[in-house]
Design a protein around this nucleic acid. Sequence first.
DNA 1: ACAATATGTAAAGTCTATTTTACATATTGT
DNA 2: ACAATATGTAAAATAGACTTTACATATTGT
Lengths: 66, 66
Amino acid sequence: MKNNIRVERAIKQLTQEDLARMVSVSRQTINAMEANKYVPSTVLALKIARVFSKPVEEIFWLEETD
Amino acid sequence: MKNNIRVERAIKQLTQEDLARMVSVSRQTINAMEANKYVPSTVLALKIARVFSKPVEEIFWLEETD
DNA sequence: ACAATATGTAAAGTCTATTTTACATATTGT
DNA sequence: ACAATATGTAAAATAGACTTTACATATTGT
């Protein structure tokens, strides 16, 4: 699975720490997600999508290998 | 977080085991999700939404407590 | 009623999401 | 250039996602 978080964050001019606070996780969690180091929970995906006012599918998408 | 999986599954006339196979998890995983016993990964949410041809947000939604 | 299928649930195990702390490097503003 | 802010990353710890096995109950079709 891949994601667009870094781009969406740039559009909204949010730092990793800003976003982390908005969705109640640590900054390292945001950093690791952007680096595709792990798959977030659905709760976190819904919260992030809500911050960016976009559907989950526009921010996270499956790859062949998923 | 809550979900609609049982309803969507009924609409498509799929058993828990059918759905489990389609998204490559165990039947107990589907059963536990329907019973709100845990929050699935985003990969699993995307796969389930794809099976039902609906956006993730129409199948999973945040509660106040999330 | 009987047989087959579907669902509920539980326990133990594995794997991985997420946190905390800490430090190094990169970027930005003045 | 300097100071402040932002990002990368790592290690150890905790919590929770997901599996496997197993059994009990409920539902459905004949």
